[in-house]
Computed example of a mutant assay.
Amino acid sequence: MDYCFGVDIGGTSIKMGFFSRREGLVKKWEIPTRKGSEPTLLLQDISEAIELCLLEKSMHKDEIAGIGLTAPGPVTDNGLLRGTVNIGWGDVFLGEEAERMIGIRPVFIGNDARVAAFGEFIFGAGKEVNSLLMLTLGTGVGGGVILNGQILAGKTGTAGEIGHMTINPFETLSCSCGKKGCLEQYASATGMVRVAKSFLDETDKPSSLRKLEKVTAKDLWDEAKNGDELALKITMYVSRLLGMAVANACYIVDPEMVVIGGGVSQAGQFLLEMIQKEYATNVFPHCRDKKFALAELRNDAGIYGAAAMVFQK
Protein backbone atom coordinates (compact mmCIF):
# COMPACT_ATOMS: atom_id res chain seq x y z
CA MET A 1 0.00 0.00 0.00
CA ASP A 2 2.61 2.51 -1.14
CA TYR A 3 0.28 4.84 -3.06
CA CYS A 4 -2.34 7.44 -2.21
CA PHE A 5 -4.22 10.41 -3.62
CA GLY A 6 -4.05 13.97 -2.30
CA VAL A 7 -7.06 16.11 -3.23
CA ASP A 8 -7.31 19.85 -2.51
CA ILE A 9 -10.81 21.28 -3.07
CA GLY A 10 -10.83 24.97 -3.95
CA GLY A 11 -13.56 27.40 -4.89
CA THR A 12 -12.81 27.27 -8.64
CA SER A 13 -10.69 24.15 -9.13
CA ILE A 14 -9.74 20.88 -7.45
CA LYS A 15 -6.03 20.10 -7.37
CA MET A 16 -5.25 16.39 -7.45
CA GLY A 17 -2.05 14.47 -6.86
CA PHE A 18 -1.07 10.80 -7.11
CA PHE A 19 1.69 10.01 -4.62
CA SER A 20 4.12 7.19 -3.95
CA ARG A 21 5.54 6.71 -0.47
CA ARG A 22 8.99 6.20 -2.02
CA GLU A 23 8.90 8.48 -5.06
CA GLY A 24 6.78 11.37 -3.77
CA LEU A 25 4.51 13.17 -6.24
CA VAL A 26 4.04 10.99 -9.33
CA LYS A 27 1.35 13.00 -11.13
CA LYS A 28 -0.67 16.16 -10.54
CA TRP A 29 -3.59 17.70 -12.38
CA GLU A 30 -6.71 19.84 -11.86
CA ILE A 31 -10.42 19.56 -12.53
CA PRO A 32 -13.14 22.27 -12.23
CA THR A 33 -15.07 22.62 -8.96
CA ARG A 34 -18.77 21.87 -9.32
CA LYS A 35 -20.75 23.92 -6.80
CA GLY A 36 -24.10 23.05 -5.26
CA SER A 37 -26.02 22.52 -2.05
CA GLU A 38 -24.41 19.10 -1.48
CA PRO A 39 -21.10 17.46 -2.49
CA THR A 40 -22.51 14.56 -4.54
CA LEU A 41 -21.63 15.87 -8.03
CA LEU A 42 -18.22 17.14 -6.93
CA LEU A 43 -17.33 13.78 -5.35
CA GLN A 44 -18.50 12.07 -8.54
CA ASP A 45 -16.04 14.21 -10.53
CA ILE A 46 -13.22 13.32 -8.11
CA SER A 47 -14.11 9.62 -8.33
CA GLU A 48 -14.01 9.67 -12.14
CA ALA A 49 -10.67 11.51 -12.14
CA ILE A 50 -9.18 8.93 -9.74
CA GLU A 51 -10.47 6.04 -11.83
CA LEU A 52 -8.90 7.50 -14.97
CA CYS A 53 -5.56 7.88 -13.17
CA LEU A 54 -5.68 4.28 -11.92
CA LEU A 55 -6.53 3.07 -15.42
CA GLU A 56 -3.54 5.00 -16.78
CA LYS A 57 -1.28 3.40 -14.13
CA SER A 58 -2.81 -0.09 -14.60
CA MET A 59 -3.69 -0.17 -10.90
CA HIS A 60 -6.74 -1.09 -8.82
CA LYS A 61 -8.43 0.69 -5.94
CA ASP A 62 -7.37 -2.00 -3.47
CA GLU A 63 -3.73 -1.01 -4.10
CA ILE A 64 -4.33 2.51 -2.72
CA ALA A 65 -3.56 3.26 0.93
CA GLY A 66 -6.19 6.01 1.10
CA ILE A 67 -7.18 9.52 0.08
CA GLY A 68 -6.39 12.81 1.78
CA LEU A 69 -9.03 15.44 1.14
CA THR A 70 -9.03 19.16 1.97
CA ALA A 71 -12.01 21.50 2.02
CA PRO A 72 -12.37 25.30 2.43
CA GLY A 73 -14.15 25.22 5.79
CA PRO A 74 -13.65 24.22 9.45
CA VAL A 75 -13.18 20.47 9.98
CA THR A 76 -13.57 18.87 13.41
CA ASP A 77 -11.48 15.97 14.69
CA ASN A 78 -14.34 13.54 14.00
CA GLY A 79 -14.41 14.53 10.32
CA LEU A 80 -17.36 16.93 10.25
CA LEU A 81 -16.97 19.70 7.67
CA ARG A 82 -18.78 22.72 9.14
CA GLY A 83 -20.01 24.17 5.86
CA THR A 84 -18.22 25.77 2.90
CA VAL A 85 -19.18 29.36 2.09
CA ASN A 86 -17.36 29.39 -1.28
CA ILE A 87 -18.96 26.18 -2.56
CA GLY A 88 -22.40 26.20 -0.95
CA TRP A 89 -22.51 23.15 1.33
CA GLY A 90 -23.86 22.88 4.83
CA ASP A 91 -22.45 20.56 7.50
CA VAL A 92 -21.37 17.20 6.07
CA PHE A 93 -19.20 14.24 7.04
CA LEU A 94 -17.30 14.61 3.79
CA GLY A 95 -14.82 11.78 4.40
CA GLU A 96 -17.61 9.24 4.90
CA GLU A 97 -19.42 10.48 1.79
CA ALA A 98 -16.20 10.27 -0.22
CA GLU A 99 -15.50 6.70 0.95
CA ARG A 100 -19.00 5.66 -0.10
CA MET A 101 -18.87 7.32 -3.54
CA ILE A 102 -15.24 6.73 -4.52
CA GLY A 103 -14.86 3.24 -3.09
CA ILE A 104 -11.42 3.79 -1.52
CA ARG A 105 -10.93 3.66 2.24
CA PRO A 106 -9.89 5.40 4.38
CA VAL A 107 -10.48 9.02 3.38
CA PHE A 108 -8.94 11.62 5.72
CA ILE A 109 -10.34 15.14 5.62
CA GLY A 110 -8.94 18.46 6.84
CA ASN A 111 -9.29 22.21 6.41
CA ASP A 112 -7.39 23.45 3.35
CA ALA A 113 -5.16 25.95 5.16
CA ARG A 114 -4.38 23.55 8.02
CA VAL A 115 -3.53 20.75 5.59
CA ALA A 116 -1.34 23.11 3.51
CA ALA A 117 0.54 23.91 6.71
CA PHE A 118 1.00 20.18 7.26
CA GLY A 119 2.34 19.84 3.72
CA GLU A 120 4.96 22.52 4.43
CA PHE A 121 5.74 20.82 7.75
CA ILE A 122 6.38 17.38 6.21
CA PHE A 123 7.76 18.26 2.76
CA GLY A 124 8.54 21.98 2.61
CA ALA A 125 9.92 24.87 4.63
CA GLY A 126 9.16 23.26 8.00
CA LYS A 127 10.58 19.79 7.50
CA GLU A 128 13.45 20.45 9.96
CA VAL A 129 11.28 21.72 12.84
CA ASN A 130 8.77 20.16 15.26
CA SER A 131 6.11 22.87 15.12
CA LEU A 132 5.05 25.78 12.92
CA LEU A 133 2.47 28.46 12.33
CA MET A 134 1.62 29.12 8.69
CA LEU A 135 -0.20 32.09 7.15
CA THR A 136 -1.43 32.04 3.57
CA LEU A 137 -1.89 35.52 2.13
CA GLY A 138 -4.15 35.23 -0.88
CA THR A 139 -7.75 36.17 -1.64
CA GLY A 140 -8.23 35.67 2.10
CA VAL A 141 -5.85 35.03 4.98
CA GLY A 142 -5.66 31.37 5.91
CA GLY A 143 -3.81 29.90 8.84
CA GLY A 144 -2.69 26.60 10.29
CA VAL A 145 -0.80 25.36 13.34
CA ILE A 146 1.24 22.17 13.53
CA LEU A 147 2.24 21.08 17.04
CA ASN A 148 4.22 17.94 17.85
CA GLY A 149 3.71 16.68 14.31
CA GLN A 150 -0.09 17.01 14.40
CA ILE A 151 -2.57 19.43 12.84
CA LEU A 152 -4.18 21.54 15.56
CA ALA A 153 -7.89 21.59 14.68
CA GLY A 154 -9.64 22.40 17.98
CA LYS A 155 -13.13 21.44 19.11
CA THR A 156 -14.92 23.20 16.24
CA GLY A 157 -12.16 22.91 13.62
CA THR A 158 -11.34 26.62 13.72
CA ALA A 159 -7.95 26.52 15.49
CA GLY A 160 -5.45 28.47 13.41
CA GLU A 161 -7.95 30.87 11.83
CA ILE A 162 -5.58 33.78 12.28
CA GLY A 163 -7.17 35.62 9.35
CA HIS A 164 -10.25 36.28 11.48
CA MET A 165 -8.36 37.51 14.52
CA THR A 166 -9.75 40.96 15.36
CA ILE A 167 -6.95 43.42 14.67
CA ASN A 168 -8.97 46.66 14.60
CA PRO A 169 -11.96 46.88 16.98
CA PHE A 170 -12.94 50.26 15.46
CA GLU A 171 -13.48 48.98 11.90
CA THR A 172 -16.95 49.83 10.53
CA LEU A 173 -16.94 47.59 7.44
CA SER A 174 -17.82 43.91 7.73
CA CYS A 175 -15.52 41.04 6.82
CA SER A 176 -16.85 38.17 4.68
CA CYS A 177 -17.22 36.19 7.93
CA GLY A 178 -19.66 38.78 9.31
CA LYS A 179 -17.29 40.22 11.92
CA LYS A 180 -15.57 43.61 11.72
CA GLY A 181 -11.87 44.39 11.94
CA CYS A 182 -10.48 40.98 10.94
CA LEU A 183 -6.85 40.69 9.83
CA GLU A 184 -8.14 39.42 6.47
CA GLN A 185 -9.70 42.84 5.79
CA TYR A 186 -6.21 44.38 5.70
CA ALA A 187 -3.68 41.65 4.93
CA SER A 188 -5.33 39.54 2.22
CA ALA A 189 -4.60 40.47 -1.39
CA THR A 190 -8.02 42.15 -1.64
CA GLY A 191 -7.57 43.73 1.79
CA MET A 192 -4.23 45.24 0.80
CA VAL A 193 -5.84 46.80 -2.25
CA ARG A 194 -8.57 48.28 -0.04
CA VAL A 195 -5.95 49.70 2.32
CA ALA A 196 -3.95 51.11 -0.61
CA LYS A 197 -7.03 52.89 -2.02
CA SER A 198 -7.73 54.37 1.40
CA PHE A 199 -4.18 55.73 1.70
CA LEU A 200 -4.29 57.13 -1.84
CA ASP A 201 -7.60 58.90 -1.16
CA GLU A 202 -6.38 60.46 2.07
CA THR A 203 -3.37 62.24 0.58
CA ASP A 204 -2.34 63.96 -2.64
CA LYS A 205 1.25 62.79 -2.22
CA PRO A 206 2.66 61.62 -5.58
CA SER A 207 3.00 57.88 -6.07
CA SER A 208 3.63 55.52 -8.96
CA LEU A 209 0.50 53.65 -7.79
CA ARG A 210 -1.63 56.54 -9.11
CA LYS A 211 -0.49 55.80 -12.66
CA LEU A 212 -1.98 52.30 -12.55
CA GLU A 213 -5.48 51.73 -13.90
CA LYS A 214 -6.14 49.05 -11.28
CA VAL A 215 -3.85 48.53 -8.28
CA THR A 216 -3.15 44.93 -7.23
CA ALA A 217 -1.35 43.56 -4.17
CA LYS A 218 1.54 42.63 -6.47
CA ASP A 219 1.73 46.21 -7.75
CA LEU A 220 1.78 47.50 -4.19
CA TRP A 221 4.73 45.34 -3.13
CA ASP A 222 6.59 45.84 -6.42
CA GLU A 223 6.38 49.63 -6.09
CA ALA A 224 7.40 49.48 -2.42
CA LYS A 225 10.49 47.47 -3.44
CA ASN A 226 11.20 50.08 -6.10
CA GLY A 227 11.30 52.78 -3.42
CA ASP A 228 7.91 54.44 -3.89
CA GLU A 229 7.40 56.34 -0.61
CA LEU A 230 3.63 55.92 -0.33
CA ALA A 231 3.69 52.26 -1.37
CA LEU A 232 6.33 51.65 1.28
CA LYS A 233 4.19 53.40 3.89
CA ILE A 234 1.22 51.19 2.99
CA THR A 235 3.22 47.96 3.10
CA MET A 236 4.70 48.98 6.46
CA TYR A 237 1.18 49.47 7.82
CA VAL A 238 0.02 46.08 6.55
CA SER A 239 3.19 44.41 7.86
CA ARG A 240 2.64 45.99 11.28
CA LEU A 241 -0.80 44.36 11.49
CA LEU A 242 0.59 41.01 10.32
CA GLY A 243 3.45 41.21 12.81
CA MET A 244 1.04 41.97 15.65
CA ALA A 245 -1.25 39.08 14.67
CA VAL A 246 1.64 36.62 14.46
CA ALA A 247 2.95 37.80 17.84
CA ASN A 248 -0.48 37.33 19.42
CA ALA A 249 -0.80 33.83 17.93
CA CYS A 250 2.71 32.86 19.04
CA TYR A 251 1.90 33.76 22.63
CA ILE A 252 -0.66 30.94 22.56
CA VAL A 253 1.03 28.18 20.51
CA ASP A 254 4.73 29.24 20.52
CA PRO A 255 5.85 27.34 17.38
CA GLU A 256 9.46 26.98 16.26
CA MET A 257 8.82 28.58 12.89
CA VAL A 258 6.46 30.95 11.11
CA VAL A 259 5.85 30.20 7.42
CA ILE A 260 4.35 32.76 5.02
CA GLY A 261 2.64 31.42 1.90
CA GLY A 262 -0.08 32.35 -0.58
CA GLY A 263 0.13 34.49 -3.71
CA VAL A 264 1.29 37.62 -1.86
CA SER A 265 4.33 35.70 -0.55
CA GLN A 266 5.83 36.04 -4.03
CA ALA A 267 7.00 39.45 -2.80
CA GLY A 268 9.73 37.30 -1.25
CA GLN A 269 12.30 38.26 1.37
CA PHE A 270 11.21 41.91 1.27
CA LEU A 271 7.77 40.91 2.61
CA LEU A 272 9.16 38.32 5.02
CA GLU A 273 11.67 40.70 6.59
CA MET A 274 9.06 43.44 7.06
CA ILE A 275 6.69 41.05 8.86
CA GLN A 276 9.52 39.62 10.95
CA LYS A 277 10.63 43.12 11.99
CA GLU A 278 7.13 44.08 13.11
CA TYR A 279 6.74 40.73 14.88
CA ALA A 280 9.92 41.38 16.87
CA THR A 281 8.60 44.81 17.88
CA ASN A 282 5.40 43.29 19.29
CA VAL A 283 6.60 40.17 21.12
CA PHE A 284 8.47 39.28 24.32
CA PRO A 285 12.27 39.72 23.95
CA HIS A 286 12.99 36.02 24.41
CA CYS A 287 10.66 35.17 21.49
CA ARG A 288 12.22 37.56 18.98
CA ASP A 289 14.59 35.09 17.33
CA LYS A 290 11.82 32.83 16.03
CA LYS A 291 12.51 31.39 12.56
CA PHE A 292 10.58 32.93 9.65
CA ALA A 293 10.48 31.32 6.20
CA LEU A 294 8.65 31.56 2.88
CA ALA A 295 6.53 28.58 1.89
CA GLU A 296 8.28 26.27 -0.56
CA LEU A 297 5.45 24.16 -2.01
CA ARG A 298 3.34 27.10 -3.23
CA ASN A 299 0.03 25.91 -4.73
CA ASP A 300 0.93 22.25 -4.21
CA ALA A 301 1.04 22.48 -0.41
CA GLY A 302 -2.55 21.26 -0.12
CA ILE A 303 -2.10 18.05 -2.10
CA TYR A 304 1.21 17.31 -0.35
CA GLY A 305 -0.41 17.81 3.03
CA ALA A 306 -3.37 15.66 2.06
CA ALA A 307 -1.05 12.84 1.02
CA ALA A 308 0.94 13.26 4.24
CA MET A 309 -2.25 12.72 6.27
CA VAL A 310 -2.69 9.32 4.60
CA PHE A 311 0.90 8.14 4.94
CA GLN A 312 1.12 9.33 8.55
CA LYS A 313 -2.10 7.67 9.68
Rank of each mutant, 00 (worst) to 15 (best):
T70C: 09
E184P: 05
G261R: 11
A117R: 07
V92N: 11
F270Q: 06
K127S: 04
C182P: 12
I146Y: 07
L132K: 10
E223G: 01
E97N: 14
L200M: 12
S207C: 00
L133V: 00
G268W: 09
K218L: 01
R21L: 15
E63F: 10
A217S: 12
T33C: 04
S47P: 07
A125Y: 07
C287W: 00
E30M: 08
W221K: 07
L241N: 12
S188P: 02
A224Q: 03
A267C: 06
L54A: 02
V253W: 03
K179M: 13
E273Q: 03
I275R: 01
K211M: 03
G119C: 01
K290M: 02
R21W: 13
E56A: 08
L271E: 05
N111V: 12
R22D: 15
F108M: 12
L94A: 14
W29T: 05
M1N: 06
I303Y: 08
N111L: 05
G268F: 04
D62M: 08
P255T: 08
L272M: 11
D77T: 03
T12N: 10
W221D: 06
E171H: 15
T216W: 03
H164Y: 14
K218H: 00
L272Y: 06
K313H: 15
G160V: 13
N226D: 01
T235L: 12
R114Y: 14
G73A: 00
F311P: 11
W89M: 14
T84K: 10
L241G: 05
L43K: 05
L297Q: 03
S188T: 06
A153Q: 12
V7C: 10
S131F: 00
W221T: 12
I146N: 08
S198Q: 12
W89C: 14
G140C: 06
V26T: 11
G163E: 09
A249M: 07
G227I: 04
A308I: 15
I67Q: 10
L137W: 02
T70V: 05
E38W: 00
I64K: 09
D2W: 09
